[in-house]
Amino acid sequence: MTTYPLEVNRLTVAYQKKPVLNSVSFQIPSGKLIGVLGPNGAGKSTLLKAVLGLIPKVEGDVSIFGRPYREQRKSVGYVPQRESVDWDFPTNALDVVMMGRYGHLGWFRRPGAKERDIAMECLGKVGMADYAGRQISQLSGGQQQRVFLARALAQSANLYFMDEPFAGVDATTEKAIIQLLHELKDQGKTVMVVHHDLSTVQEYFDHILLLNGELVAAGPTKDIFTPNHLQKTYGGRIAMLQDFAAVPAGQV
């Protein structure tokens, strides 16, 4: 039996009695880029947070590489939404990236030269080496996003969760991020990304999960990214949806 990087069984999450995710089950394959898609309020971020144990689940199991998340923390990296922190916090870019090493350090131990080297290397990978000493409030939105990515890289994980890394970044940063995702994939790592822009889905992701409070469909992008499934996910609200899926499939 193969173990999946992530296996979710009948996961239900509720905010104060109102269910946000209803009995969601899926597995994701190893070494792929996976997009999580769905309308606002569909539970995309909630899914990520529940898997990471940041919010309590009502029921269901989550296993990461075949074991509970608690035992696998060091093999998981996380990029939260950029707005989730106060960027006026007194620290610099390098310091934030070094935070990615804290989980490996354990209690009381201070980060040292080794952690600094790893952090510098990760900053270099996202093209931010020149900004290491920069106060984080003086970075642009795209640069802040790259710092968060570098911090996740510093976690040296095998499975990454990214919550809307493309939100509010310019084209250059988006390119840099997607290039980085491909590098991770080439190293055999699995990346799960909450994504909003339907026009880039086919270009970016090997697999997709369509969410709408419950799982609509999951699987390889070419099989799942169809007008029918999108209709089910987003409702009949956007006629344009048809085009996203239809054009490359040559159905026009």
């Binding site: 947070k49 990471l52 923390r73 998981v76 989730s84 935070m99 804290y102 989980g103 209690w107 131990r109």
Partner: peptide, 20 residues
């Protein structure tokens, strides 16, 4: 606990995901 307090003050969500 400087390191722990710093991370918890800056980004508690990330810290929790890391198992802190």
């Amino acid at each position: 606990l400087f390191k722990e307090f710093k991370l918890v003050s800056f980004d508690p969500g990330f810290a929790r995901g890391m198992g802190i």
